[in-house]
Design a protein around this nucleic acid. Structure first.
Lengths: 253, 253
DNA sequence: GAGTGGTCTAGACCACCTG
DNA sequence: AGGTGGTCTAGACCACTCT
């Protein structure tokens, strides 16, 4: 009977569903509007709820939808562009005046293995860990931990007393940044990769653990060595990282 | 009876599974080694296959595993760092000598709406679409389409004959790039965001449709306007995008 | 308490790869 | 042909948010 169906590649249902939903979002829904619930949508399209969810997951990954347990599934606004670079301009230390971050916390602890590798030191080297966060408008978009080896910025007098206040910890964090600014920044390099939010990051970003994040790792070079390492996790669903040129035209749209 | 369980947040099974598997990968498996199949693993951990798959999906997203239908689930090598920037160095046009891309195909067509917006032209403006791909070693890591408006590089004499050979089409693509190089590049800006592979990209990247990709969008500025737009999709599972400084030390690890 | 999305199960069948 | 991962189903229960 020969080859009856030539190149008939049956599209998975969830893939087709995603396309249909995507078009419906463009034409029939406004940003912020709540969709019918999953059971209802699944019934309407004649598929199992799990199949519908597979389509919704993809759309959420692409930043088209935003789902919240106990609330519903809403049409997401377009991704916000967050400046990450000014790559062509002069480099500057984190915490320089006017940067977009809010300094929140500080502690001293041994460096995690992955960080120690980036710092070219042995695992467990004592480091400062400075926590910062970044918002655009009312939305939390990124959480960062900045690691500074204790032999770059010496340990601070304030003790490790776990009972010290948030304000004290934040003040110590700012003090570490001030010390860092005394050094001469020679260069930096930066990588971007996909990750999934660990429990702590998820909490800070108002997402569930495992949510997709863009991990931006920056090494700051001073005195011919790696003087600090920053690991920043951005919400992948809501963010578009922007490495703009100072000379370039503003991005449309 | 009061609050019997204080802050007992039951960890989802798949999340715990992921942690256990992740540790097993570090200690008990070599890169490239094939894991037991999903039904076997699910039985061994006493969970449904769907639950196990949720854990495997996360690990694949993080670049720890590589799954292939009909073959099995293997331990993935560490992500490869792919240079995307030399951001601090002089900017250069795509296709400049020594760049990492292979020029493959060319066609002329109306610009998709999203591209037209970036080009600051109306939708449907005729553009050249140059397709390029990038490999590291034997692995396909990225697929790109470069859009150049027809009023920046004029239409090429070679006809739209759909029967022209691959070699002819590649030659036309290179011709477009050559014309582009005659312009004075004033600047560029670049964004990175998470996307999912469309059917064509998935094929070129040897992945299933919907696979997570890092979408790098670059606008090239010349003569005070956007002279070209590149949309490059990198495999998010295997790639770490690197924006290295020329001055910086080489990245360890 | 009612309604939402998140997790989990135990099955089935399909598309793909390899011997 | 046999084994793999990919898709899909029809349920169940849980965690969360709102009123």
């Amino acid at each position: 009977m020969g080859t009856t169906q030539l190149e008939t590649v049956p599209e998975p249902k969830y893939w087709h569903l995603k396309t249909v939903l995507s078009e419906a979002l463009d034409s029939e829904f406004a940003v912020g509007e709540i969709l019918p619930n999953e059971r209802e949508l699944a019934a309407r399209f004649g598929v199992a709820r799990a199949t519908l969810r597979q389509a919704l997951e993809q759309l959420e990954l692409e930043g088209r939808l935003q789902r919240r347990r106990g609330v519903g599934t809403a049409v997401a606004p377009p991704r916000v562009g967050v400046d990450v670079g000014s790559e062509s301009g002069p480099r500057s230390w984190p915490g320089a005046p006017g940067d977009a971050w809010h300094t929140e916390d500080h502690e001293q602890a041994p460096a995690p293995a992955a960080v120690a590798r980036l710092l070219d030191t042995g695992a467990g080297t004592p480091v400062h860990a400075v926590r910062r966060s970044r918002t655009t408008g009312d939305q939390q978009v990124a959480a960062e931990i900045l690691y500074v080896p204790a032999d770059v910025v010496p340990a601070l007098p304030a003790g490790q007393d776990p009972a010290d206040s948030m304000a004290q910890r934040a003040a110590r964090a700012r003090a570490v940044l001030r010390e860092l600014h005394r050094l001469d920044l020679q260069g930096q390099d930066r990588t971007v990769e996909l990750g999934s939010a660990r429990a702590e990051d998820a909490r800070r970003l108002d997402r569930l653990p495992g949510a997709p994040v863009l991990v931006v790792t920056t090494r700051y070079i001073a005195d011919g060595r790696t003087a600090a390492v920053s690991v920043a996790t951005y919400r992948a669903d809501t963010c578009r990282l922007s490495f703009s040129d100072a000379d370039a035209l503003p991005l449309a749209g």
